[in-house]
Amino acid sequence: MRTEGDTWDIVSSVGMTALFVAAIRAVESKQPDALVHDEFAALFVAASGDPTTNQLIDNPQLWADSPLGTEFMGLRSKFFDNLFLAAAEAGVRQAVIVAAGLDARAYRLDWPQGMVVYEIDQPKVLEFKRQVLADAGAAPKADRREVAVDLRENWPAALIEEGFDPAVPTVWSAEGLLGYLPGAAQDALFARIDQLSAPGSSLACDVFDTDLDYQQIADFQAEQLRDLPFGKIDFVDLVYTDDRSDPAEWLTNQGWTTTSARPEELAERYDRPLTAALQPMAQMFNNMRYLSAAKPA
């Protein structure tokens, strides 16, 4: 269970979900029609020494044969990749990856000259990522700056201290994050992003509808996934289900222009048919929205 002020490394609590996501990205990257190419994801998993996620990479058929569907992570990664690339093409030169986890976009995307990428996350998570990439001899394709701070603390001050300029447009991502924040922290996150965003900024996040039945998902995990690697991550115990504002509604009220897409819409957009998932996982995927927002210039 989560506690106030809890912390984690890459093989515990919320950090473990980042490692799991990296394993799925590594598997997706090997597909002939891969929507994301992440050469670093497998390095993170191997360096962690975690047998569960390494098993997924060593035997990707475990994922393909699972009752979860197989395209979710590819669609999600492609959505956020496109957000950053579109903003950069439009002239934005400042990006912030909120709760960066094992996101390697600073290394794998083709950023333009002068791009600065800020990564916000727990100190132990960023330290692990930095060491793995350094050991691999990897060099970022942008000016990458770490902001080692908990999102429940004063992260805007830490971000500005690293050189962030709130007077210029920024592209923001909050990928796979919101459920891991208490409602008050989520609302504060968007308020702070709004305050730090100059006109011409953009933002993307993924959002679950409020009527998602988390207990049904927990029961399904215990019954159907207990013998599979991804059954060992107690997702429901890591998320918060307290009241919070709807991000699309909140941003619209602040003057942002918002659009949302469901997974099936992304599947059509990226020409990747979805494999049917069993209930209640299908309900979880269907209750997900991918939100894009722009602050008018």
Rank of each mutant, 00 (worst) to 15 (best):
R226S: 15
V36C: 15
S66I: 05
S202R: 15
E89Y: 07
T252E: 14
I10H: 01
T257Q: 15
A174H: 11
A142D: 10
R145P: 07
D213H: 12
T52K: 00
A142W: 06
N82P: 04
G49Q: 08
V21M: 14
V132H: 03
Y290N: 08
A158R: 12
T7G: 01
R262D: 01
L85K: 07
E249D: 08
F230I: 14
P296M: 06
K141I: 11
H37K: 14
P247E: 01
R130N: 12
D65V: 02
Q254W: 13
A106V: 01
I120E: 05
A99P: 04
L225V: 12
F79S: 09
W8G: 00
E265R: 14
A157T: 14
A174Q: 09
A184Y: 06
P182I: 10
D237K: 00
R130T: 13
L291S: 03
D103G: 03
P247M: 04
G91M: 11
E146Q: 08
A64Q: 03
L19G: 02
T257D: 14
L203F: 15
L291E: 11
L133V: 06
F230L: 15
G114S: 07
A46S: 13
S12N: 04
I57Y: 00
V36Y: 14
R289T: 07
S29E: 02
S13E: 10
V207G: 06
L177S: 08
S202H: 13
V14R: 05
L238I: 06
A261C: 12
E264F: 07
Y107C: 04
D227H: 14
L56C: 04
S48K: 10
K232S: 15
L68N: 05
A184L: 07
A297C: 00
Q283K: 02
Y180E: 13
L266C: 04
Q216E: 07
A87P: 09
G183D: 02
E28R: 06
Q279A: 15
R152H: 13
F208C: 04
A261E: 14
N287F: 01
G74V: 13
L177A: 10
D227T: 13
Q283G: 02
L278K: 15
A88G: 14
A198D: 02
Q55W: 06
E39Y: 02
D219P: 03
L196G: 06
P247D: 00
E153S: 14
T7Y: 01
L43E: 14
D243V: 12
A277Q: 09
A88D: 12
A47Y: 06
P32R: 05
Q94P: 10
R2K: 03
S12F: 05
P140G: 09
A64P: 02
A46D: 13
N154S: 13
R144H: 04
S197R: 01
L35C: 00
A282N: 05
D58M: 05
D237L: 07
A218R: 09
D38H: 13
A261W: 13
R262G: 10
R192I: 03
Q55L: 12
S29C: 00
L102S: 08
G15H: 08
L181E: 02
W111A: 12
A222K: 13
V92L: 09
L278G: 05
P247V: 00
V21I: 15
F72E: 13
P51Q: 10
S29I: 01
R2V: 09
Y240D: 02
G163Y: 12
R2I: 10
A198S: 09
Q122K: 11
R108G: 01
G101A: 09
P296S: 12
D187C: 03
A104F: 05
A22F: 12
E127T: 03
P273M: 07
P32G: 00
